[in-house]
Design a protein around this nucleic acid. Sequence first.
DNA 1: CCGTATCCCAAAGGATACTG
DNA 2: CAGTATCCTTTGGGATACGG
Lengths: 144, 144
Amino acid sequence: MKVDYEVAIDTVKAMMAEPASALFDPQNCPVRDVFAHIGDKWASLILQILGLRPHRFGELRRAIPDISQAMLTGTLRSLQRDGLIYREVFPTRPPSVEYGLTELGQSLLGPVSALVVWTAEHHGRIRQSRTQYDLDNPPKKKKL
Amino acid sequence: MKVDYEVAIDTVKAMMAEPASALFDPQNCPVRDVFAHIGDKWASLILQILGLRPHRFGELRRAIPDISQAMLTGTLRSLQRDGLIYREVFPTRPPSVEYGLTELGQSLLGPVSALVVWTAEHHGRIRQSRTQYDLDNPPKKKKL
DNA sequence: CCGTATCCCAAAGGATACTG
DNA sequence: CAGTATCCTTTGGGATACGG
């Protein structure tokens, strides 16, 4: 599936132009709502990993060494609640649990990956910009 | 500019396949780094608004009624530091300040808008999924 | 092996008052 | 008008220990 960025930009502009656009309604804003999830520290990473293939709980832990068990469980729950991933329990001994993308999650993988690609391409320039900014704006001095 | 989601997905998969991929390096992961900014509660919203046209500080405040002055200032600083927006001061009395997208910010608008469009299209299904999940998983009971 | 519960600290974020 | 400083509350997220 292909997407034209110009069209997407215009679509969003049109959404914003509506009076009382949902985009500006703190209660009902899809952007804040969804970005709050996929934008969090771990969710998009998990999404990408599950995009490769389904993983078991322990596999995910090993794939993301610096995540705590509590956060992994919590993030998976949240994604599952949103219908982006499925959770399947196999009644083995000891039990094993597999996570994978639902169709909805799969459909999210495209736009998110596009953003990741942008990110990877421009990361250097962003870091450069930060360095420059910090040079121009040295840590402030207190009044004497 | 058009983007093929399949290509983006494959690109990211290739990035993840590399041994010691930067994507899994907590220190150097562009995804975490950039998502931490644009994924935050306000940054993407500001990006979209500035995509419409440059805005003054007060205009932004009015456009986003539920943002505190401190958060607005902080978010703008962060975006400026990353080189996504510019800040221009007009020496009027009283002074006025204009914010707008840089070229880099403009180039980010496409991928982010694509994600916003996805979000708007699927928000209903996500909310539905949440409701269903909450029905299936009633608030837990304490042990007696 | 998976998941939950608890505790605790650090950072995010809001309100308000003050300055250039 | 724009921005800073301070205070205070809420949340995010890590460590650990325990239960199914």
